[in-house]
Design a binder for these strands. Sequence first.
DNA 1: CATTTGCATTTGTGATCACAATTGACCATG
DNA 2: CATGGTCAATTGTGATCACAAATGCAAATG
Lengths: 214, 214
Amino acid sequence: MAKKLQDSYLAAHDQLYRSLRMRIMYGEVSPGQAMTLRGVAEEFSVSVTPVREALKRLATEGALSISVSGRFQTPALTNDRIEELAALRALIEVELATRALPRAHMALVERLQTINNAISVAVAKADAVTYIRTNLEFHRTLYLRAQAPAMLATVETVWLQMGPTMRALYGRLQRKDPPMHHRLILAALKAGDEPGLRVAVRADVTQGLRMLAR
Amino acid sequence: MAKKLQDSYLAAHDQLYRSLRMRIMYGEVSPGQAMTLRGVAEEFSVSVTPVREALKRLATEGALSISVSGRFQTPALTNDRIEELAALRALIEVELATRALPRAHMALVERLQTINNAISVAVAKADAVTYIRTNLEFHRTLYLRAQAPAMLATVETVWLQMGPTMRALYGRLQRKDPPMHHRLILAALKAGDEPGLRVAVRADVTQGLRMLAR
DNA sequence: CATTTGCATTTGTGATCACAATTGACCATG
DNA sequence: CATGGTCAATTGTGATCACAAATGCAAATG
């Protein structure tokens, strides 16, 4: 193990946590998929010790559920839970977007437009994982301007819980249209239009999900 | 170890997690307090294995911070962070209270009044831990009626992050008055007054904290 | 007195082990 | 064919170990 205090050093359990977190958040795994300590340990060539720690951290955040017998799997969300998490997103992301607006300069809008183009490509290719990833990148890029790290962390926990089920929903719907609300968000950012931004963000995170939950 | 599938069975790491979580959430520890694996292991008479897992879970939720060298301690929140967490509470708890309102029958109001009396006793005794605990019990009892488990879990994560700093703030202010907003919340519940309830909950979770952060 | 050095102690980490409980596969029975 | 029993394999758990890095303390130095 290299020097701990160096910037580039990450403990094995932390690296595992981050890798698995991204995998789950971006829908690289389906709902209901089991994950065993020894399976993950073998995949990453480590002992089960850091794996246990990483999986338990993810379970604490709702990214993994633990069966009564103690086994780990990705959660399959009920429609009630989807609605609840969408409502949470609407509450928090609207606030994040509002806080970001004063710092939403043209460079940000251009960056978001670039991401939106990538989203359209992913949609055209019916690539659920890239779609989820780029969609969240769109949102995260905007909300980082809010400079509200605890709120952003909270929303990321919501995204994380939704990853596998989002994958299943996108796969089922075979969506062909790029998200129109992103364009409304971009227009509101350009215009410095706070009420319009709030409406667009809320619509983006709730209406889309309501359709998907049918 | 007893039978795993029995209701009463909890793994050591889970018991530890729960005990330490409550300790932190209710302000039984001050901000900046260190926590070592072997210290906790000795206190609870277990090996370091479940302790590591429990402490890492708590760190994932922001209940503990990890220094660059890897050590665990309770976080001391900046004023910015306090404001941000209060804003999160305002967003989510107002929604929880609103969702709870249709199920807020007289038995609930009476239960909340009983808790409020206990809060007043804790305030009169300048007992910060009991105050924090009973205050959160007031809110949790109300929000359980919302039947929105993911939202409630999210808010509890916020409470958890605030526990040690709330302890320090209450200790510094030596508050003598019971929280008046709780009475407004109770009145709004009795009257079925949604706008009044929203205002009272928002005021309770934000104004009090703003005063405390001075 | 402030700073540096040396060293013992402490701390967190990953690996390994043994164990209890659960699961899955296979076979027997009705 | 459905159900129950048996047994090996799998799974998660806590304990222990060795190790590297960080910390704290005392002594030496400027």
